[in-house]
Design a protein around this nucleic acid. Structure first.
Lengths: 158, 158
DNA sequence: ACAGAATACTTGACACGTAAAACAATCCGA
DNA sequence: TCGGATTGTTTTACGTGTCAAGTATTCTGT
């Protein structure tokens, strides 16, 4: 039984209480690093990773989305989104407007400037993904995706 | 080729540009959820997950640690740790003191109250890990740990 | 039709993460 | 040994995430 690399990283001598505990820490720790690095990529264009994600949602939607919809797709609480979109609007990357249908909703839409910024970022982000996960081959990536899916959603539907 | 579950979650129709891109998003998204849920557990004892992690580091160290050491083990910048420890000190969970050896350093140590709080939290946290990762069996957990290790550190040393 | 519940969003307050700049203590080379 | 780098920590400022509370709009049941 070789010693866990994670234990070395955090300089602990006690073993983990369970494989699940170790996996949980490994998950949060790994995501932490990837998040930070991806954030640095987004920063080269003056936005945060959170803002980048909002822009990608809006681009993918191919049309205006109410604030709540963005929140759901990002798994985030609405208050945060409001401010995120406000910032993006001030940078001219997103446009907000009331809609006649349901006047409680505010529709958000990516602007041409926002689309352009995304295009400038796409290459670097793709490259980063390939580099960050470059130690895993295609089949390992599929395994990883499957395991993560099951953590979020439980076992696949039969 | 069955459709990615992740695409459904974020309601996107376009496929991911690569497996690496999908894995990256799956990783951040999964960690996001786990982080939020673990944070809620810690909140039952009035502390944040970040504070919980600091306390665990200090308990595991079995002795005082300088601030920088905590920062390194948490992969975090020092300014954040300073405030984190300041908060913990105000709650009486951590004690800080100057040390004669190198007077730049400030040694941090968990207090008995901090240890007690950790003990109250241990059970719930273990339980949460088991539940959150309960869809994976032991060998799948090992696979996940290995894949995550390799994302952080590159291929294992031969 | 209308009062009360639900929904969509905003605002305020607070913790956290980060970068930049400040400060004190220590180290190191000439 | 003296002055300039380096190290350990704090302060400041800003974006973000969360909760709780507030406002405006829509829905629902009678």
């Amino acid at each position: 039984m070789t010693r866990s690399r994670l234990l070395d990283e955090i300089k602990q001598t006690r073993p983990f209480r369970s494989k699940a505990a170790e996996a949980g820490i490994a998950l949060l720790r790994t995501a932490n690093i990837v998040h930070r690095e991806a954030d640095a990529i987004a920063a080269t264009e003056g936005i945060s990773l959170a803002q980048y994600n909002v822009l990608r949602i809006l681009r993918g939607a191919r049309g205006p989305l109410p604030t709540m919809e963005i929140a759901e797709r990002l798994i985030e609480q609405t208050p945060g989104i409001t401010r995120l979109v406000t910032n993006l609007e001030q940078q001219g990357l997103v446009k907000r407007e009331q809609w006649a249908g349901d006047r409680r909703q505010i529709l958000c839409q990516i602007t041409p400037a926002g689309l352009k910024l995304l295009e400038r970022l796409d290459g670097a982000m793709d490259e980063y993904d390939d580099r960050a996960l470059g130690n895993l081959n295609e089949s390992e990536l599929e395994t990883l995706i499957d395991l993560l899916d099951r953590i979020r959603n439980g076992p696949p539907p039969s």
